[in-house]
Design a protein around this nucleic acid. Structure first.
Length: 806
RNA sequence: GCCCGGGUGGUGGAACCGGUCAGACACGGAGGGCUUAAACCCCUCCGCCCGAGAGGGCAUGCGGGUUCGAAUCCCGCCCCGGGCACCA
């Protein structure tokens, strides 16, 4: 009796070997062509969950597949180990975030090894390691020096639950915090920003060069939000000392301006408010201040309460007419100039506001006959617009309007972006400290690089105060000024954890460098990442920030100047759902992988994730799932028996059939690996196995099967290969299909009469048109159908089909 | 409202460029074999409807269209998922 398949025994054995042998360690001077495969480094929240298993199964498959194809594959792993959960746990339990995090990292490391994922563990990075902190701080200081980091007072997003400010990207569309779900409010605070807006155009343009899912690119384009238009000056009627700037995307409609609006926070408000309007205006400004982001951006609510007349008038430069200036909460100080011209006839918001306040409407684009809508934004001839009248093409009319503004010296073409600068400071403890000090004499002074890293102390108290606990730690807070040596205080804010994740892929290229965060040569060797894998939830945040960092680091000379994009190819895997919602710790619907590792084993679980459907699709974890996993395990058992029991399959294999099938399989699976069609690749392996059970197995056929499944189910493939050959399957070259054997030398040609299949003929694939037609017409079944009539038309598509139209 | 995806058997999914009466592979189900029995394992069958059978009809969300031929292309509609949404 042959030995049974024992997944636990062989998986433990091979995981240990891969680690001991350093199978997937790779050096920077490796002569093979490079391939950098990277899964987004995880936040260490404890043992791996199914989402991790899915993610790292894909990454591991690529690592092993590329290695077998002769590449030097860089496959590193690390941990995004700063962040709120560890600090919240500290507040709750008093345990310092460092030991808490280290424990979670150890757990996640164990379970990643448990699924057989292969990494160069020497290169591991953790955001909270002093080495890494030093790198993050060095980069910050260089960006500060280059003017790409700055401090400013700004109305910022404040989350009362997290007791910290948030980046715009971390506020959900409904105005709540993406982490805690609390309603985010606005506060005026002195904060740190990265000048990501300096790269708005390049971030937009370079999307074209990336092999990324289209929907991720679309999301980024929307987020950057480029809009072209004009900016111009309007005089305030009767006030020669005052004027305001407005931005519009439709300068061609300016003759239809019937009022103007400035944001309630606009600096001009106090000056343009007339005395009789002052009480009302002040009350309105106060009301808007108190409104949450949700109220303010909501389309609900009575418009009558959402604006107020200032008492002043602006002069429309196009026709010299005065229009009333209003305040309205829907005009935002943070976009454009914080002031707009309002054209109700061609803008629905302006239309609605005009209706509520009894303001006039002047059409400047003639709507089509029978138009019953309100604002009309389509094409049509200009009217009521003097020198624009009659122009139908909007682009042309815009250009003329802009030319006129330039001519008059009151305005010019202007491009605006929705993208705002990246607010990076956080009033939290468990993040990378911002390395600057404040000196009474010298103001803000960067900490010299030779004094890095600035590491937070361990003996702090965790209280949710709205300020970093560092602020209450006397030893950390008080220091000396690097310039004058006098007493100074440290910055106590820490950095957003997205700063850490914006350069970790560069550190992986050069993890032992203690001079610099990374060396240019090492980065040139490996970058860009050839295949990046992660969840769609990072479509904007992480993937935008990292792109910005890459460009900025190249420009300030830290990275190679021509390295503009970090991730050449991106794959976003589907998420795992249960009962209709995403499987997550917070929803309490996690299924622990250990349950499967302890029974069917890691290979079967990995195979399930590959087999269940296209990698990009979501997976529904249902009652059926366990059955499918059991099916994957059954398949591995069949392979095991085939490779270990001589009489598992018929003893006299039909060698010819099996050989040909094996070589067709090589061609098919290779092609499917290359296009991420893993579910059909597994199906092909199953089909082949079924064939071997039926036709008999040759040694060569079983070897082919093991080689092809080695990236998917690495442990069983390694074990069986070693038993058969004594060496290591993953060190083998990927098999190449013999074209003579893989070639199909007889195909079934379909013969249709009026589109219905009436016969099938075995023909050589090289058959010509005339021959195919002749063969088809000779078919008895065709003659029956035709009953002597001659065909009207014959469509011949050799070698696949002949269709006879009677 | 706008922009992307997607609707295929009882289920997950195949079908790369329009061409093997669509449904690979797997799950599930039915029947059978092995077994004292069960599990494991093996074999056969399973889109729907009519028919004893041969066979016929209908089928890829719905309605049209293009084509010798449509799950695949075009137009209109319905449903599901995701993104954006006072950004002037």
């Amino acid at each position: 009796m042959a030995e049974a398949y024992d997944p636990q025994a062989i998986e433990a054995k091979w995981q240990q070997r891969w680690e001991e042998w350093g199978t997937y360690q790779v050096d920077n001077d490796d002569p093979r062509p490079k391939f950098y495969v990277l899964c987004m480094y995880p936040y260490p929240s404890g043992p791996a969950h199914m989402g991790h298993v899915r993610n790292y199964t894909f990454g591991d498959l690529i690592t092993r597949y590329r290695t077998m194809n002769g590449y030097a594959v860089l496959s590193p792993i690390g941990f995004d180990s700063f962040g709120l959960p560890a600090e919240n746990a500290a507040i709750k339990t008093g345990v310092h975030p460092r030991p808490f995090t280290d424990e979670r990292v150890a757990e996640l490391t164990e379970s990643l090894k448990g699924i057989g994922a292969s990494y160069d563990w020497r290169r591991e990075v953790r955001s909270h390691d002093p080495d890494y902190i030093k790198g993050t701080q060095t980069i910050f200081l260089r960006l500060l020096d280059a003017g790409l980091a700055y401090r400013a007072n700004a109305p910022v997003n404040w989350c009362p639950g997290c007791q910290t400010v948030l980046a715009n990207e971390q506020v959900l569309p409904d105005g709540t915090c993406e982490r805690s779900g609390d309603v985010v409010t606005k506060r005026d605070l002195e904060q740190w920003f990265f000048k990501i807006t300096a790269y708005a155009q390049e971030l937009l343009d370079d999307l074209e060069t990336l092999e990324w899912p289209e929907r991720v690119k679309v999301m980024q384009r929307n987020w950057i939000g480029r809009s072209e238009g004009a900016e111009f000056t309007m005089r305030i009627a009767g006030r020669d000392d005052l004027s305001m700037r407005v931005f519009t995307t439709r300068p061609d409609t300016a003759f239809g301006m019937t009022y103007a609006v400035v944001a309630p926070e606009h600096p001009l408000v106090t000056q343009i408010t007339t005395d009789d309007r002052r009480p009302e205006v002040e009350a309105f400004v106060e009301q808007v201040r108190r409104e949450t982001e949700i109220d303010r951006l909501s389309t609900e609510g009575a418009l009558e309460k959402r604006g107020v007349f200032t008492g002043s008038y602006a002069v429309n430069p196009f026709n010299g007419e005065d229009v009333p200036i209003y305040l309205a909460d829907y005009v935002l100080m943070t976009y454009g100039t914080g002031a707009i011209m309002a054209v109700p006839a061609e803008d629905q918001r302006d239309w609605d506001f005009a209706q509520a306040y009894g303001l006039p409407v002047v059409r400047t684009v003639e709507p089509p006959d029978g138009w019953e809508g309100e604002a009309y934004t389509g094409e049509g001839p200009r009217v009521n617009s003097r020198w624009l009248d009659g122009i139908t093409d909007t682009a042309e009319a815009k250009q003329k309007a802009i030319d006129w503004l330039v001519d008059q010296g009151v305005g010019e073409r202007k491009v605006n972006f929705r993208l705002r600068d990246w607010l990076l400071s956080r009033q939290r403890f468990w993040g990378c400290p911002i390395p600057v000090v404040y000196c009474p004499t010298h103001g803000m002074v960067p900490v010299p690089e030779d004094q890095l890293p600035i590491v937070a102390p361990d003996d702090v108290e965790f209280r949710p105060t709205g300020e970093s606990p560092l602020r209450f730690h006397e030893g950390f807070l008080h220091t000396t000024c690097p310039l004058c040596g006098g007493p100074a205080t440290r910055e106590t804010d820490t950095m957003d954890t997205f700063v850490d994740s914006s350069w970790y892929f560069l550190r992986f290229c050069d993890p032992f460098n203690d001079e610099e965060p990374f060396g240019k040569d090492a980065v040139s060797t490996w970058m860009p990442v050839d295949q990046y894998i992660g969840g769609i939830e990072h479509a904007i945040l992480h993937l935008m920030y990292a792109r910005f960092f890459m460009k900025a680091l190249a420009d300030i000379g830290m990275a190679p100047v021509d390295l503009r994009e970090p991730f050449a190819r991106l794959f976003t895997q589907g998420m795992i759902r249960m009962g209709g919602s995403k499987m997550s710790k917070s929803k309490g619907n996690l299924v622990a992988p250990s349950r499967y590792l302890d029974t069917v084993g890691a290979d079967a679980l990995r195979l399930f994730h590959l087999f269940v459907g296209p990698p990009a699709d979501d997976v529904d974890w249902s009652e059926q799932t366990d059955e499918i996993i059991a099916g994957c395990s059954r398949f591995l058992n069949r392979v095991w028996r085939l490779a270990t029991e001589p009489d598992a399959a018929p003893s006299a294999p039909t060698t010819d059939v099996v050989d040909r099938a094996a070589h067709r399989l090589i061609a098919r699976v290779t092609e499917e690996y290359d296009r991420w069609s893993y579910n059909t690749a597994v199906a092909a392996l199953m089909e082949f196995t079924n064939l071997l059970y039926k036709e008999g197995a040759t040694d060569e056929a079983v070897d082919t099967l093991l080689l092809l499944m080695a990236p998917m189910a690495p442990h069983i493939a390694a074990e069986l290969w070693e038993r058969r050959h004594g060496d290591h399957v993953h060190e083998h070259q990927w098999p190449v299909a013999d074209p003579d054997l893989a070639r199909i030398d007889s195909v079934t040609m379909i013969v249709q009469v009026n589109g219905k299949v009436r016969d099938r003929l075995e023909v050589p694939p090289t058959i010509g048109e005339a021959e195919a037609e002749a063969l088809a017409l000779e078919s008895e079944k065709v003659r029956e159908q035709l009953a002597g009539a001659s065909p009207k038309k014959v469509i011949v598509r050799p070698p696949k089909l002949v269709n006879i139209v009677a």
